[in-house]
Write a protein that binds this DNA or RNA. Structure first.
Lengths: 145, 145
DNA sequence: AAAAATTCCTTAACATGTTAAATATTGCTA
DNA sequence: TAGCAATATTTAACATGTTAAGGAATTTTT
């Protein structure tokens, strides 16, 4: 009656959690010094990459659920890391942009972040690294799937 | 000054989150019918697989942080899915075991769960599936790393 | 143009993630 | 054996994940 399922050590959801734990260790170390969370870092990176965005698009690109983004945006506004203004043509939309203070956090940590990424490539091998990203994207619900 | 970092679409932490989202969709559907959470399902599966365990080992194998397990175990006890007794030789330890009611949830859903796993293998290819698990284990902090 | 449906965002409520502090038990050491 | 360190678990506090409900603005329908 047992053993129909793969052992938990070979379970895809658990493997994804564990891999994420491993990946986040050095990143958390970096962010601890800056005083922002991993999610806030993602918001800043997406805004840096794409420029001002409406909240929906931002949440989507930063892989945050909408209610989470609402709260995170509130605290980031208080810290002065982002600005948020109503869109003039569609007043339902909130347009969020990175501020100078937010940009400074990105700039101050880019080198360190690049170093961390390089560390992963060295640790598991560049080819494995790229292939892992390819395989993961196969599971991404927003892509071909 | 930009573009030192990979684009967020090619970021390993974000790719791991998105992949997990995709993987969890059919599993959440299954669990919604049973009334237990994804974490509670992991606890049941680990207990089914290994038998009674002390809380530390259980948390480790279910990839849960200790405080999370404490709360989850409380609610699972209330539901009658697990039992929890003090270890007699070391009264600091709490030994947690699956109950008949908990076992029934596993038994009632094994076939569905197996189907979901098969779905992933078909969707991305069996070889890719196995290789993905191998690559993910390279990032697991509790393993070789 | 008024009513209904849709879209975008916020709020609410509860579970979990995360870090730190507190508690209880055991083991070690002077 | 009294006292201190180490271990196992719980509790606390706050951020985030998750689902559902609510509110405001826009679009669609009639």
């Amino acid at each position: 009656m047992k053993n129909k399922l793969p052992p938990t050590t070979r379970s895809l959801p658990i493997a994804l959690i564990r891999a994420r734990e491993g990946v986040m260790i050095p990143i958390r170390e970096m962010l601890a010094e800056t005083g922002i969370s991993e999610q806030q870092w993602r918001v800043l990176r997406v805004l840096d990459e794409h420029g001002p965005l409406d909240a929906s698009t931002l949440a989507d690109r930063a892989s945050l659920l909408f209610p989470s983004l609402t709260r995170i945006a509130q605290s980031m506004r208080k810290k002065g890391l982002i600005s948020q203004v109503q869109d003039k043509t569609d007043r339902r939309r909130q347009v969020i942009a990175i501020t100078d203070a937010g940009q400074k956090i990105i700039d101050d940590n880019v080198d360190h972040a690049v170093q961390i990424v390089e560390g992963f490539k060295v640790s598991i091998g560049e080819a494995n690294y790229e292939q892992l990203l390819d395989l993961l994207s196969l599971l991404d619900p927003d892509k071909s799937d």
